[in-house]
Simulated scan of single mutants.
Amino acid sequence: MAKLPNGVLGNFYGKVGNIVGYTHKGQQCIRQASRKTTKAPTEAQLAQRARFSLVGRFLKPINQFLNSLPKKSKNAQARSSTAMAQVQRAMVEDGETPRIDYPEVVLCEGYGGIFDAELTPCPGGFSFRYTIPRWTRLMIEGIHVLVYLPEYEDWVIEEARFDGEQVAGTVILEDFMGQTSAEVFAIGKYCRGTKVTNSVYSGSVLITASTNPE
Rank of each mutant, 00 (worst) to 15 (best):
residue 16 V to M: 15
residue 73 S to T: 13
residue 189 K to A: 01
residue 180 T to I: 15
residue 206 L to A: 08
residue 26 G to P: 01
residue 157 I to K: 10
residue 121 P to D: 13
residue 56 G to E: 06
residue 129 R to S: 14
residue 53 S to H: 03
residue 96 E to H: 06
residue 199 S to F: 06
residue 126 F to A: 04
residue 50 A to E: 13
residue 157 I to D: 06
residue 166 Q to D: 09
residue 180 T to R: 15
residue 143 I to R: 01
residue 83 A to F: 08
residue 163 D to Q: 15
residue 210 S to F: 06
residue 129 R to A: 13
residue 78 A to N: 05
residue 105 V to E: 07
residue 154 D to F: 07
residue 139 M to L: 10
residue 108 C to N: 04
residue 115 F to C: 04
residue 212 N to L: 08
residue 203 G to S: 10
residue 106 V to W: 07
residue 200 V to I: 15
residue 194 T to P: 00
residue 81 S to I: 01
residue 51 R to S: 03
residue 171 V to A: 08
residue 132 I to E: 00
residue 8 V to Q: 07
residue 160 A to V: 12
residue 214 E to C: 01
residue 119 L to P: 09
residue 73 S to K: 08
residue 32 Q to H: 13
residue 6 N to R: 03
residue 65 F to W: 10
residue 146 L to G: 06
residue 109 E to Q: 11
residue 88 Q to P: 01
residue 88 Q to I: 00
residue 29 C to D: 02
residue 162 F to T: 13
residue 172 I to Q: 09
residue 209 A to Q: 14
residue 196 V to W: 01
residue 43 E to C: 00
residue 52 F to Y: 00
residue 117 A to G: 10
residue 31 R to H: 02
residue 56 G to I: 06
residue 83 A to W: 00
residue 120 T to D: 09
residue 85 A to C: 04
residue 14 G to H: 09
residue 187 I to K: 00
residue 107 L to I: 10
residue 137 R to C: 03
residue 88 Q to T: 10
residue 30 I to S: 13
residue 35 R to M: 14
residue 55 V to W: 08
residue 211 T to S: 10
residue 125 G to R: 09
residue 25 K to Q: 05
residue 132 I to Q: 09
residue 193 G to D: 03
residue 123 P to D: 04
residue 147 V to D: 11
residue 169 G to N: 08
residue 24 H to E: 07
residue 1 M to K: 14
residue 177 M to T: 14
residue 126 F to H: 11
residue 67 N to I: 04
residue 45 Q to K: 03
residue 14 G to F: 02
residue 45 Q to M: 00
residue 175 D to A: 04
residue 104 E to R: 14
residue 126 F to Y: 12
residue 108 C to L: 03
residue 129 R to E: 14
residue 104 E to T: 10
residue 176 F to W: 13
residue 85 A to P: 01
residue 70 P to Q: 08
residue 14 G to T: 05
residue 69 L to A: 02
residue 4 L to Y: 13
residue 170 T to V: 13
residue 59 L to T: 07
residue 4 L to I: 03
residue 151 E to R: 11
residue 188 G to N: 00
residue 74 K to P: 00
residue 161 R to P: 02
residue 37 T to G: 13
residue 40 A to L: 02
